[in-house]
Simulated scan of single mutants.
Amino acid sequence: MRQHLFALVITCILALPSFTQAHTSDSSAPLVSVQLWSVKEALKEDFHGTLGALADMGFDGIEFAGDYGPYANNPSELKKVLDRLGLKASSAHVGFDALNDKNIANTLLYFKTLEVKTLYIPWDERAWDSKKVAQFTQQLTAAHHQARRFNMEIGFHNHEREFEPYRNKTFWQYIAANTPDSLPLQLDIGWVHYAKQDAIELIKAYPQRIRSAHLKVVAKDNALSPILGNNGFAWEKIITSLIKDGHTQWLVVEQEQYPQGLTPMESVAASKESLEPIIKTLAK
């Protein structure tokens, strides 16, 4: 019975049209989305109103992080909501529990309906465990290969610990070297800086694999403003490298910290506003 159901879901996935990302290499500046984890409490309080406010801020898309409002079992209706707001689903963060043998077909069908091409594993403690990182890369690769059958991808998103030393390099380098070149690496610029790594060097090291990047500031001990902008980050050079070297198609604004006096929604708006002049310059 389970095999029959799996085959039926696979048939449905294959029957859907083939989706491609909105931008390809060496085109104009990428589109800009927002990681919905940034405004998770607002989303819980008013799902539709929050999406509408993000659209009004000028975002091109949103990146899902587990909250689908009343549409957890109805991607078709959720797609209609996004279409009405002029938003695209740039990607989604999902855990391996959604990609096991029991769930992967339904997960891929759900996101294929939303026209999402790429899913990212956002966190896995095996990624910085010397005894388990090989197992992790094998599972990541296997899931990616399954997704590729449906013109989709499974990738990985970093935090800071992936840049800890491992075998004379780093865990991140090990993961990148032991996964296919087709597997996307979502670079989180905030955690890259926090780990004292060079973002541009990392982008250039993995050409065409940085299909999307999180633009964020990790502001520990109030040493930096968490708002994108005047915080010592060479955003224009970083974004230029993302476009040229990473072939990045989506810039994803993420806000995990909020200055005193600003709500999460106001913080996201402030970061988006500071990013706009850079995007406009690069789009010329």
Rank of each mutant, 00 (worst) to 15 (best):
P30N: 14
S241Q: 01
L202V: 10
K102L: 06
L202R: 04
L51S: 05
S90P: 06
L51K: 03
H48I: 09
K220D: 10
Q146S: 11
T137Q: 00
G229E: 13
T24Q: 13
A143I: 07
Y194G: 01
I200F: 03
P70L: 08
L14G: 05
D198Y: 00
T113D: 04
T118N: 11
G229K: 12
Q208F: 12
E153R: 13
A147F: 10
L202W: 10
N73F: 12
S271L: 02
Q139G: 06
V133Y: 02
G61H: 13
N103W: 04
G61R: 02
H157Y: 05
S27K: 12
L82E: 01
Q135G: 15
F150A: 07
L5S: 10
I227V: 15
I121Q: 11
K112N: 08
D26S: 10
L224C: 04
A29I: 11
T50Q: 00
L36T: 01
A195F: 03
Q35G: 01
A55R: 12
T113N: 09
G49L: 07
G261R: 01
A219Y: 04
A269F: 05
D221T: 00
P75Y: 07
V252P: 05
I227G: 04
S274C: 11
D56N: 07
P30G: 13
Y206K: 02
R149E: 15
T240F: 05
G95Q: 09
L82T: 12
F59Y: 15
A29T: 09
